[in-house]
Write a protein that binds this DNA or RNA. Structure first.
Lengths: 266, 266
DNA sequence: TGGAGTATTCCATACTGTGGGATATCTGGG
DNA sequence: CCCAGATATCCCACAGTATGGAATACTCCA
């Protein structure tokens, strides 16, 4: 009856809050406004339950109902809180760095962090295109995710769903573990067509003082534009950006002290 | 025991969600990271209750705990959802308009909308300064709020707290009702020192097809810079911006058809 | 070394959230 | 014009979820 949302969830003593967050998540997944019944269907909730929760969110301004269609969409309070979150986390300082990186390399630059079993894109990218697809991607099938796993907590790796998205997606835990080892020794992750066919992506970590990846920076483009011969150059540009972001995004006491992981082409 | 948060709240059958939102709201009010016990104190919740709710929010990435201090702050999922909300509501298109208005007039330009008993600032302003004070202001004591009330639903006016913020704050419902009438006939709201002493603010509505204020645009500066002789000019600049925003923020079917309310200096 | 302020976990109880159902509205078609 | 289908909204008795007191573990500071 209940679908588990992430490999984190201790669903104890907080059912309604969990359900409320599930409702919110629907809006990250769908670019259109949603009807109440639609939301109930997507979350598997009873209509009246969904409706009650939606009303609370609407009264708080987290969601809003279109006066004409009565459909729900993300509301002003969320824009407000999001703006605060964005600022307080220093992401507005990251944006120009990413823009510069994108302009310099001609590729698309993304900044992401890990939330549960997903890489959540925080800055960069193209919202008009990516906003429709949603801003979170599975960890196992993206360069960003591999970096976050390789320099992070991948103990519970078997808890990840490892869903097959394309023909090339890694779905075997052991295979993934080897890939992560390769990523760690190479100093960067390379993806081609494992998440979206016809797209090549590289990613590098933004490391803290314990050598954990707090964020990841990715560059993606067509395989031709990102030809193997120029791969090292792309990775170095991304790494330079990542180093800058360590200063901009981490508080002084939590910055990497050791050297960046050296880049070694496979 | 329970403090009522807004003059909207049907607190029925959603206690935990309400409490969760109250916890979130604490972060909008305080610029610093907050400890769990601090949050429990501010919301009046039992420590264990607050902790449980905070854990759910943290697992979802709505909040995050500083790895060093274990204090809570706004998290990546909120930045993600906020970014989506910001974009989907077209607020990124409003930002340049407001920047232009601010540059042109030399004042600070804000865009806000109504959520419950508050005017929530969505774009413009200076986040570094305003982010510390919070992004929401009471309706009765700000030019933005007066506009949202004057061209909006002010039937439940007596339900507003009407808290006294400065010596000049309007605290009498009847007095406020007269002021709103004045605002409606003037076509704009003027505030001086009712919210913050030494600041003069004007605001105009962004109207929809039913002549409701969906948003409000404000300009604020020192009383000298915004001298009475030049007041009409400031109001006209703001009104021009508001007209532009009607096109940018409202869907085609919901745009004002009639003329803008004419501006009449008192 | 002790004490104050925390985070975190446990559990029996009671109150909150639940969902089935009934009603009101709306829309597009026949 | 009226009906069928889909939707928003409200109500209420029941069950199970959320609650908060208390106990433990941890960290910082004097």
């Amino acid at each position: 009856m209940d679908r588990d949302s992430a490999p984190t969830a201790p669903r104890e003593g907080a059912q309604s809050v969990h359900r409320t967050l599930a409702l919110l998540q629907c809006f990250a997944d769908s670019p259109q406004d949603l009807t109440g019944s639609d939301l109930a269907r997507r979350t598997g909730l009873a209509l009246s339950t969904a409706h009650r929760l939606l009303k609370v969110l609407t009264n708080a301004g987290i969601l809003e109902q279109d006066p004409a269609t009565a459909r729900y969409r993300l509301g002003p309070s969320l824009a407000e809180l999001g703006r605060l979150a964005y600022h307080r986390r220093g992401l507005h300082r990251a944006e120009p760095e990413l823009a510069e990186l994108a302009a310099h390399t001609g590729a698309t630059a993304d900044l992401a962090t890990r939330v549960g079993g997903h890489a959540v894109i925080l800055a960069g990218g193209s919202l008009d295109r990516d906003g429709a697809r949603g801003l979170r991607r599975p960890l196992h099938s993206t360069a960003l995710g591999k970096v976050l796993l390789a320099w992070g907590d991948n103990a519970d790796l078997t808890a990840l769903p490892l869903e097959q998205l394309t023909r090339r997606t890694i779905t075997d835990p052991q295979h993934l573990r080897e890939e992560l080892e390769r990523v760690r020794t190479a100093g960067f992750a390379l993806n081609e067509g494992e998440s979206t066919t016809g797209v090549r992506t590289i990613a590098v970590p933004v490391l803290d003082h314990t050598d954990q990846a707090r964020f990841a920076v990715a560059l993606r483009s067509s395989p031709e534009a990102m030809a193997s011969a120029r791969l090292a150059w792309f990775v170095e540009q991304a790494a330079a950006c990542a180093t800058a972001l360590e200063v901009l995004l981490l508080p002084p006491g939590q910055r990497r002290t050791g050297p960046r992981p050296p880049i070694a082409l496979p």
